[in-house]
Amino acid sequence: MHPIIRLVNRNLTISINPGFLIWQVIFPLIYIFVAGFAYTSLIQQVPFGSKSLDYPSFLASGMIGFNIMNSTLVSGIIIWNDRRHGMFEQIMSGPFTRAHYILSNIATIGIVGLVSASLIALVGYPVFFESVEFSFITVPVIVFAAITGSVLFGSIASIISTRLRSSEGFNVIINTVFLFFAFVSTAFYPAEGAPEPLRTLFYLNPLTYLVDIIRAGIFGNITEFVIVEMMVLASLASVLFVVATKLLTRLDF
């Protein structure tokens, strides 16, 4: 077996546990079904391009992006724990290179991200199927979003975990950053209705781009603006990936 596959095997073994599954699968589902329908009396229709969506479909599609972002926390936590519990040094003294380690983390996030996204998409499907407009680009767009989004948020989580020393700091910062991403984005509510400066803030947040792209893919509304968003997301992901890799390469013992 290739060293990267062996490391991915290990990564998945240590990160998949009941707590993680609840956080990753049960929580978003409860959110879609409870919040989605509870808010329906307040929010009947959400304008979306040329059509309008009901709130549960809007929310369910947003949760896919939200879930991809959350799944990348896995990578940050793996790196963080490996440093804290001596496994980073141990692995680096074994038959692996730093490149193996970094790529295995990216692959792990990619897998967890894709699986989470598909799960939510699958379970959310009955909620938004009426509005779905499948085309030959729907699946590629979602896969693009899942992978780019995983790399982007995975890099952010990795950067945080290479920069910090105390574990309180790690949890507080990771939670604050990801909470900001989650709630100041278009995952839960549309940008159109939001007042300034919140609206501007939405577009300073990569999750907004990720969610917009996924929605455009699902509901068949790939506009020029969405294409720009895809380019922004891809560039940002590349830059952050390079930074995260540099920091990981420089970590010393």
Partner: peptide
Amino acid sequence: VVLQQPSYEPTLTVEKSLEKYGMMW
């Protein structure tokens, strides 16, 4: 290599950590 610093996967059981370590090698 057994370094001075402890190294372990907190959530794995003893037997699982041995097995996974063998797999990594």
